[in-house]
Design a protein around this nucleic acid. Structure first.
Lengths: 223, 223
DNA sequence: GGAAAAAACCTAATTTTTCTAAGGTTTTTC
DNA sequence: GAAAAACCTTAGAAAAATTAGGTTTTTTCC
């Protein structure tokens, strides 16, 4: 193992990333030290990853999810950087840190990127940060407690919805009109109507509105 | 919290269970101590769980998976006891300890029982056993490393198979003939033939035999 | 607040997809 | 070499999707 573990930390709050940097660089590891490079926001993070293409420059890439200010309306997230890292620097470990602890989001990211770690920000302290580096380097994966709870919830979900139903629930949750879903879900509007009706029935919210369906889906971890 | 945490340990190797008993009873916990009752095998475990029905007698139920000697040919496993515990003593935490570390088995059990912990036996030592009790009591779940790796593998599985295909793969893996699968899978033999052919195509093993299909499914964590 | 427009909800007929029944051919097992 | 099993195919049945459009409810606008 190298004497220095290099971490790229990508966050839209530089102060947060600097906090992690000093914690990790001050910590005492067994047989190595940690050096943290900070990238402020999506674009800088993207650049660093691209600049490192094909190298082993980073042992760990630490990614926030939200990397643009809300008003930027940019749909790209840390998940996209995670996928990019997987492609360009496949030997680097990818770890997410996010304030999101909802089941759906965590499981979606884990499925899409298969990260070596996931930390819910409210659970991060000095010890867990250090423990994350140790575990990710030697025996991934590393999940904080709430991330594990979310994973467990998904695993034990006995009521299955297929990919179409999941997409319908998601589109409902972000406010897309049913008639517009045909542009993102390859089904006819009547089929979407039918499946929506079936979902309401199966979730025990027929005779109720979409909000009830969304809420029940959220409770069950489908969104 | 009670001063004493009571654990029911169900294993078919009494010496193993006794080992856990002495480790945990000798350990020093913060604010409580641990008392372990040992049940030797499935039937005794079943009896203890039934006797405890509706009570809070056990804080934790620790279950091995294999609870009959191989020659007994009894299909019941610790998973059945786990489900029973969930039903009769719902306030007790359920934790599995097993030598199985294959992805399919771990994920099946987690889905069927939603345990508060899963330990792969090769990873159990004094510290992890103690840590398991602490975590399970205060903030479940607790998975050992290989269990987490298995969970992660399942999560990141992008190639989905539905329940019918998964059952076909499993039946193939235990050697059941295709013509006999109709007794355990509610599909016609022609449909099973068709799905099997499609699975071989999707897994890139058409023109190969069943062993190739099984192996590829195992690699991908479907069995 | 009411009218018009938009969207949701719903349904029947038709089409498409998947399953099944039935049985033939090929391969494997004994 | 015979029997068993796997593999494969076709025609028909069943299930799901689609087309097309109607009714009801909600939203928007004045």
């Amino acid at each position: 193992m190298d004497d220095v573990v290099t971490v790229l930390s990508v966050d839209d709050h530089k102060m947060t990333a600097l906090g992690y940097k000093y914690i990790l660089e001050d910590a005492v590891f067994d047989g190595y030290s940690v050096r943290v490079e900070v990238a402020n926001g999506y674009l800088e993070g993207e650049k660093r990853i691209k600049d490192a293409e094909g190298t082993k420059r980073y042992n760990i890439v630490l990614l926030d999810i939200q990397l643009f200010p809300a008003e930027a309306k940019d749909p790209r997230t840390g998940q996209d950087l995670g996928k990019l890292a997987r492609k360009l620097i496949p030997e680097s470990k990818v770890v997410f840190m996010s304030s999101f602890s909802d089941s759906f989001r965590i499981n979606s990211i884990c499925q899409a990127v298969n990260p070596d770690g996931y930390l819910v920000k409210s659970e991060i302290d000095e010890l867990s940060l250090i423990d994350m580096v140790k575990t990710v380097i030697t025996a991934p994966p590393y999940y904080t407690h709430l991330a594990l709870v979310a994973v467990r919830k998904n695993m034990s979900q006995t009521f299955k919805v297929d990919e179409y139903d999941q997409a319908i629930l998601y589109q409902l949750s972000i406010g897309r009109k049913t008639k517009d879903m045909t542009s993102v879900i390859p089904l006819s509007q009547a089929t979407i109507d039918n499946r929506k009706r079936a979902l309401k029935h199966n979730f025990g919210v027929q005779d109720k509105n979409d909000l009830a369906l969304i809420e029940e889906a959220r409770i069950r971890g489908f969104i």
